[in-house]
Simulated assay, not measured.
Amino acid sequence: MSTALITGASAGLGAQFANTLAARGHDLVLVARNVEALEALAGQLREAAGVRVEVLPADLADRQALQVVADRVAGDGPPGGAGQVDLLVNNAGFGLRTAFLQSDVADEEKALDVMCRAVLVLSHAAGRAMSQRGHGGILNVASVAAFVPGGSYSAAKAWVTTFTQGLANDLAAHGVLVSAVCPGFTHTEFHQRAQMNMSRLPEFAWLEADQVVDVALRDLARGRAISVPGAPYKALTALLQATPPGLASRATLALGRRRRSRKRAH
């Protein structure tokens, strides 16, 4: 895999994917809304790793902008830029601070556009192009939240996980690897940008971004459709998958009530 296209590349896990892949000699196409942040990262990577880096600004919730990215995924690339995309990393996403019924429905729709529709459209473009060439990889960033009935974010990540498993089956015979990485809480800007107070979460529950990326890339290369970094989260997801859905829902509901009662007490 010589060229990787990464969505949500300006910060967090996306930036870590960019740094790791550049260090391994991959040319890059970086996609995000923040042009300044993309240009700054691209300059750093060109200097540090000596790789070709394209900057492709796009809001993936905008269908026209998404199509531009899909065309780049399926095409050869501009002269002098990075080449054909051999690895697609669908990383773009964001969380909403408010509960579903307290959120603006337009924000909920935008989240689904970025975390589900964009994954579908870009995976379709990549899957077709890569299967014709007989090689390539698609790595979708999901979450441990996919295994917990906890609102629209969990639902979006559950969709990504199930979609990835089906796509992995479809493309296995064509030499294309497909995987969904499902990290738990990870030290990035994600929660800060969503204005979520995570100060009470114990340190042992946190993963490091480079750890998540290394495990994700390793499991993709091994052909694992689902990748869960960190032993505690592997155990947790195994437990959640073995728990009857009704019991898991009741546990989530009880936890939500406990959190609300704590907020009222304060």
Rank of each mutant, 00 (worst) to 15 (best):
L122M: 13
D71I: 01
S103F: 05
G137P: 03
L13Q: 05
L220G: 01
A146K: 10
H135M: 13
A11C: 08
V73W: 03
E189K: 12
M1F: 04
R224P: 02
G150Y: 04
A82M: 08
L28P: 01
A209D: 11
G43F: 07
V73G: 01
T7L: 11
L66R: 15
D210H: 14
S123L: 04
V68Q: 15
V105M: 12
L45D: 11
A251H: 11
R117W: 01
T98E: 15
L239H: 03
A37Y: 11
E189A: 09
W206H: 14
G77K: 08
T7N: 13
Q16V: 05
P78C: 07
D107Y: 06
V228N: 12
E208S: 14
T161K: 14
D86G: 05
V69P: 00
A111S: 14
G137N: 09
G127W: 00
G8M: 11
V114Y: 03
V178S: 04
V69D: 09
L5H: 08
A173L: 08
L177C: 03
A238D: 14
P57K: 10
G127L: 04
L88W: 07
G77T: 01
A216Y: 02
M115H: 08
A238K: 08
P232W: 02
A173H: 05
S103Y: 05
A238S: 13
T164Y: 04
L247W: 13
M130P: 00
L88T: 00
G43M: 12
Q211M: 06
E108Y: 02
L220N: 06
R262L: 06
A205Y: 00
R72G: 04
G14M: 06
M198Q: 10
A248V: 00
G150C: 06
D104R: 08
R117N: 13
L5G: 00
L167A: 13
A22N: 07
G8T: 05
Q102T: 05
L112Q: 10
T252N: 14
T188E: 13
A22L: 03
H191L: 08
V29A: 05
M130K: 09
T161G: 15
A9Q: 06
